[in-house]
Write a protein that binds this DNA or RNA. Structure first.
Lengths: 546, 546
DNA sequence: CCTTACACGTGAAGC
DNA sequence: TGCTTCACGTGTAAG
């Protein structure tokens, strides 16, 4: 981290500009340590555009003027914890202040006014041996900001494993724990499908940790109890499973870069300008003070800086550290080396930036795509769960098992239904063969006291004989046996008609009883007078009717 | 591509070494054009280790000696298509030769012997204005090798869209069309689950296009008809959907790098050495011949080179092209610029390498993981298809639709089954209630001519009256009306018994007819003598029996 | 350690 | 063109 203090002006300016864009911060200051136990401004810049003023004052110079006043200040290193100076004195590689704390611990009035005017929500102070790097954000910092910083300055710590930021040897206060109001498990939202729009809280929650330049409110409403926030709640709470957050964060960093090609081209040009610049400005500022004694009040843990600083840029630069004794003709070569250092610093950032560019393009459509895909996945999971609930409960809860068991269940059910319907059909046919009589009986209950009907049975296709159904309904008080006997006597004397089967019922209501009789008859001969037969039957039973 | 010819020795050597490692090639030659219409060796190297000799001859110098003999040759540019020279003469940015073609078109005997001794399977010749770049592989080149080359030399063409290699303006012969023996659509393999092992053809097919240094045969068995190859067939055939291949290829390039940290560290050191080298060797070789006239026999399309060469490194280097007129004191600055060019060439490769490192670690476990995931997905899709086939055919083929329709279908089927079973149960009960009669009738067809039974109906729980079924089977020749009349007369005079319903059938066989009668009776009083009643009925109809 | 399962974001293709 | 669906490779967790 100290190497940025050792750079020449031009590469340092490029680097700082790059750094500011990388983190989307509003301003950046390099406070250099002076042996007179104070910090003074070495370099830095303030980007007006990052926080657009809500009041439409067209004079953009107030914050700039305050920044100028701030940067011309000199900060005596005292035994308090005012900023800047606190991180340097206590060897803190990361120290973050927000809101009222920042204003309270500011060292002087122009600094405080600048913070307010520039709407600085968060300031980060990174101490090293050469001084302190201050960096301000116009929005509230998030958890991964520290990790981002660490990745920037000590990239080799993050080359392989994705360690958490809390595992770093950083003694600063953990920022913004965001008191979550949900300890419920991520219940897959359990709500019906909701229609997402692009400015719904989901999207802003996706952007909440990204230094954006728009006026989108990057603060999530903490206590929004609508159902729409529940769907993204596991993404923005600290109680979520780690991998989701890590994946979400890893994809969505640095969304503010406009166009990769233009950016890369401009960066390339800047680097070329750095490299091809003549070495005239190689001695524009004195070499940094070579103090190896630790700052006061922290003598024991100064080697905390040694370990992270052993980067690849230092490992393979032998001769850099002891080469400051001779100051003869190797000055140009030394400047060359310094330029190399600066270039590799730029290279580090540049590569990471470029890599981020082409590994993710979080444009608006990409965000929309992401949300749509999430919604689709959630819908699929809901369907899976709904399907799983229909299955017999003893089965596996796998997706594949759900599918296969559903398949088996469905086919077996289909076969079952087929078999049942077949069986039902033949049962119903069987019953209907008998139940049709009942239905005909029920349907034939006319108002008359005696009702005689004759219907031809369809199976009687023969010419010699035919089968008919004779149905007699009789409302009578007399017992049903009388009617039956009379009809049977009548049939007995009619020799062309023989009885095949008969069915009789007596339906007794409170007032009267109804005898229902169905006889299947076989009639021989083709010249059978149906109406005469019907009238004869009626006359037989007519006097029994009441 | 020409810029590599303009480099200094040291950065060029570094760059060539990097290039060789990037593509895992065995040797590399820069053939520079000389105005005397010939090509001569400018730079290059041969890596012995990439092809380990099968014969355990401990003298590693034969191939080296042959390479030395090869590189000291001078190739006259003739009107034939021998290599090197063919690509340069015909402005081919990519020209590939394999096997016998390579040996046939070699220009002299040492070259041919070197190819054989070094086991060069594929040589790639890339022509540009300054000469020709030759690059040899000890394994067979694949389709994406051309694309890799193009990505290396013209990276801006590949920055956004993933164009196919065939869409490039490359007039070379399309290499290794791999005559596919499958024109069937990717039928989702339609085979049952297979057990994958790590050295199954799937894995080698995943690695087949990667320049590996082991002796793994990178040739896929062309006509392997086992079912195990079918699952990966859409990945290695040219008839596959493009995006799958592109995605698969994009993830699996450059697997041969051993350790990223060591590589990066070494590269950083090399770059630092390049940058910090004194400018003493800046004029070790003459500036390249500034000929703008195209080579013979290809005057019309030389601007093919102009378009791909408009890289970002050239776009933002104003003053490089017209600065060759003045050759005064700006020489050191020009060398600086050239060093910048070389550095940015290295930077390009370096960044891509590093990016590949940390964007994918295609280790063995990763490959296994990938294959497992593919298998899982395929299983899920098979289940989906199987489920889809069970659904009514008019529905959507969506996954979500399949799930929801399956859900509805399953619930409706379940309800249907429940209803059917319920209806079936009561139907069966109803049928059994009547079928029991028939069965009893059928079972009761004793050898006696008359059979009278009395059974209690279960619903008759009252004490005052009970319901009984009287069943009479009578084998008789007389008409059934007689029996009915007699029984009904008997019931009529029995005043404690009333008829509720009756059912009669006559079953006529060839020898005799059987009358079957079932009467449901209501018996009043609790002191009813069942056996006496039964005997009385028997006596009534007994004389009718035959 | 290895296996299995899942969610994620992304690119491609169809509509 | 925008929207939807899908397959892919990867990270992560549980067993």
């Amino acid at each position: 981290m100290d190497s940025v203090f050792l750079l020449d002006e031009i590469p340092r300016a490029n680097f700082l500009r790059l750094l500011m864009r990388s983190f989307g911060c509003s301003y950046l200051c390099l406070w250099s340590y002076h042996p007179s136990s104070c910090l003074h401004f070495l370099d830095g810049l303030y980007n007006e555009e990052n926080n657009q003023p809500s009041t439409s004052s067209a004079t953009p110079s107030l914050a700039c003027t305050l920044f100028h006043a701030y940067r011309t200040s000199i900060f005596i290193l005292l035994e308090d914890d005012h900023v800047p100076g606190h991180a340097f004195r206590n060897n803190l590689p990361y120290f973050e202040l927000q809101g009222q704390d920042l204003l309270r611990l500011a060292s002087n009035e122009p600094q405080r006014e600048f913070y307010q005017e520039a709407r600085i929500k968060t300031a980060i102070f990174m101490g090293c041996k050469s001084g302190e790097i201050e960096l301000g954000l116009s929005n509230v910092s998030q958890v991964n900001m520290k990790m981002e910083m660490m990745k920037t300055w000590f990239p080799e710590e993050f080359s392989r494993q994705s360690t958490h930021a809390d595992q770093l040897p950083v003694p600063s206060s953990s920022p913004s724990p965001r008191p979550g109001n949900d300890q419920n498990p991520p219940s897959s939202s359990s709500s019906s499908l909701i229609s997402l729009s692009m400015d719904s809280p989901e999207y802003s929650s996706l952007l909440f940790n990204i230094p954006i330049t728009t006026t989108t409110t990057s603060q999530i409403p903490e206590a929004q109890h609508t159902t729409t926030t529940d769907i993204l709640q596991p993404l923005i709470t600290p109680t979520l499973p780690h991998h989701q957050a890590m994946q979400a964060f890893a994809r969505l960093r640095n969304i503010q870069f406009p166009s990769p090609e233009i950016e890369i081209a401009a960066m390339t040009r800047a680097m070329l300008a750095v490299l091809s610049s003549p070495s005239s400005s190689s001695s524009s500022h004195q070499p940094p003070p070579q103090f190896n004694t630790p700052p006061p009040a922290a003598p024991a843990d100064q080697n905390r800086f040694i370990n992270p600083k052993a980067s690849v840029f230092k490992k393979y630069m032998p001769g850099l550290a002891p080469s400051n004794t001779q100051i003869n003709a190797h000055l140009s070569r030394q400047s060359m080396l310094k330029r190399s250092i600066s270039f590799f610093q730029n290279l580090n950032i540049f590569m990471r930036t470029r890599q981020r560019f082409q590994e993710t393009r979080p444009t608006t459509t990409q965000l929309h795509h992401m949300m749509s895909e999430r919604k689709r996945r959630e819908k699929l999971n809901e369907s899976f769960n709904a399907l799983r609930s229909l299955l017999p409960p003893g089965t596996k809860k796998d997706k594949a098992s759900v599918l296969t068991i559903t398949k088996e269940c469905l086919s077996s059910l289909q076969a079952q239904v087929a078999e049942l319907t077949k069986r039902n059909q033949q049962l119903e046919a069987q019953v209907l063969k008998e139940g049709s009589h009942e239905e005909a009986i029920a349907g034939g209950s006319s108002n008359e006291r005696v009702d005689v009907r004759v219907s031809h049975v369809s199976e009687s296709t023969s010419e010699e004989s035919q089968f008919i159904d004779l149905q007699v309904n009789l409302r009578t008080q007399r017992p049903a046996e009388d009617m039956l006997i009379r009809i049977l006597e009548f049939l007995k004397q009619a020799n062309t008609v023989s009885l095949l089967s008969m069915e009789a019922n007596t339906h007794i209501t409170e007032s009267s009883s109804t005898a229902r009789l169905i006889l299947r008859l076989r009639v021989e001969g083709s010249d059978w007078d149906e109406s005469a037969f019907q009238e004869a039957v009626r006359r037989v039973v007519d006097d029994l009717a009441q």
